[in-house]
Design a protein around this nucleic acid. Structure first.
Lengths: 109, 109
DNA sequence: CATGTATTTGGCAATTATGCCAAACAGCAA
DNA sequence: TTGCTGTTTGGCATAATTGCCAAATACATG
């Protein structure tokens, strides 16, 4: 019965994880391939500890996965599907107001 | 130069607006067509004033638009593109972990 | 073992979000 | 006008988020 509410919360968690400029930025940077925390820190401009916590949020949401190699931790997209969401987002922002519910041709393959 | 940061913030705002269970629920309800605030209140189970504020967040983010008719205010999706994001979300959550960056066949047309 | 590099964790202050109530506001009808 | 329905706004208490610092941890190397 709570399954529906749980599912809703899980879905919202993904959006929420992307709903912060720094986290969104990091995901976009990771679109090009994995990066270690120190690399991301240089490009995002926040304290390393803050970056680490943001990355943990994205892992928790299922957007990223991490892998430790030597003394570095590398983060990467868990699945490239998330990039499609960015495409959708761009289309949504570009899209004119619509009065009908006809599915527009947004987010093509 | 702040254009990039502004864009990032605007994009994050959309995700953030969807990153709350109640707001996500309302958007999903509105996928079937416009609803007035009182209808949504009954289905979400929060105080009307709270619903109203959540709806304002979604309008601010560009996800919804509102229209007043008689003494009721109807909300609807600004563009159906947002529904594609839900498809993407489902695919993302179903998608297995991937090690390569090859675009998987998620979010088909 | 001691040192250096890389990352995470704990904790704190400041900010923001959430949800309720009460009050204000808008529009319709008697 | 008055009353009624529907919505928004203001305000408040509580909770969550954000970002920094300092300390702890993990790992490789000298």
């Amino acid at each position: 019965m709570n399954a529906a509410a749980d599912n809703l919360r899980t879905q919202a968690q993904v959006f929420k994880s992307l709903g912060h400029p720094a986290r969104l930025r990091m995901v976009q940077l990771l679109a090009d391939g994995e990066r270690c925390v120190c690399d991301l820190t240089g490009q995002v401009g926040l304290d390393i500890s803050t970056i680490s916590k943001h990355l943990a949020v994205l892992v928790q949401a299922g957007v990223l996965v991490s892998e430790k190699r030597a003394n570095k931790v590398f983060y990467r997209l868990r699945t490239p599907c998330v990039l499609k969401m960015f495409t959708c987002l761009g289309e949504l922002q570009q899209s004119p107001d619509s009065t009908s519910l006809v599915e527009a041709t947004c987010c093509p393959p």
